[in-house]
Amino acid sequence: MRVSFIKMHGLGNDFVVLDAREDALPDISRKMAARIADRREGIGCDQLIVLERSESAAFLMRIFNADGGEVEACGNASRAVALLHGEAATVETAGGNISLEPTAGGASVDMGSPRFDWDAIPLAYAVDTAAMPVAWEPLQQPMAVNIGNPHAVFFVDDADAIDLTALGPLIENDPLFPERINVNVASLVGENHLKLHVWERGAGLTRACGTGACATAVAAIRKAVAQSPVTVTLPGGDLTIEWKSGGTIRMTGPAAEAFRGTFEWDDYA
């Protein structure tokens, strides 16, 4: 079976999108998702995105990380999908429904409300999520936030000085995080302006992470080191995050289509 795909990216965080809203596809296994994502023997991407029919929204967006694991949310992919869809829509995800709207050169996405309760992250045991009493070498007392998926946010003097390739896997797979964790390391570089590096669970060090930018901006606002709107600079570029306590998070930034192609389903099944 010959299947069409669309290659897209948001600030260099790249996706293979399969649009199965009209013509359903067979179910995708973890092994198949990882094969498609492989950059040497597959199409290559950080996340595989599958669009399907939904009973509660315009459509369902399923998200598979590069290791094949299915996850709840992806902010950059949400902007890319908004660009592809071409109009405002409510989209179902495993992390809850989100609202998206294309803009000039990108999209604005309502990512829903952040969650801070320890069992909503989730953590292995009850702990103060505003300043968790844990540390991994120079990274100490992170704030835990769930933005449809789990994040630990560390604030440091210089985000560029932290070796996330070494510390990221240790934190991601710590028993404290039963569903693993996305690791965010940020520093304040200007008024309401953060620099951010993200180790993404199941994907590794990434050029951009939309939910990570949301989690980090929310953490900075809660800690009173920044006020909304917050500019978050990632290696791939800038995102603007708006949030007020008790409200939902709005993320705005660019997205783009790179190319389209086809592949033989059985080559990856």
Rank of each mutant, 00 (worst) to 15 (best):
V3F: 08
I6P: 03
H9Y: 09
L11P: 08
V16I: 15
R21L: 11
R30P: 01
I36P: 00
A37S: 15
R39Q: 03
I49V: 07
V50I: 12
L51M: 02
L51H: 04
S54E: 03
F59V: 05
F59L: 05
R62D: 01
I63K: 11
V71M: 07
A80S: 12
A82R: 14
E92L: 07
T93E: 07
L100F: 08
E101F: 01
G105F: 05
G105P: 08
G106V: 06
S108P: 00
S113H: 15
R115H: 14
P122A: 08
L123R: 09
A131S: 14
M132Q: 02
P133L: 07
W136H: 10
W136K: 04
W136L: 00
Q141P: 00
A144T: 07
V156G: 07
D157W: 00
D160F: 04
I162W: 06
A166S: 10
G168S: 12
I171N: 08
F177Y: 15
P178A: 06
I181C: 10
A186R: 10
L188Q: 14
K195I: 03
K195A: 15
R201T: 10
T206H: 08
T211K: 06
A217L: 07
K223V: 01
V230C: 13
D238K: 08
L239F: 12
L239R: 08
K244C: 10
M251S: 06
T252C: 06
T252E: 09
P254L: 12
A256N: 11
W265H: 02
D266I: 09
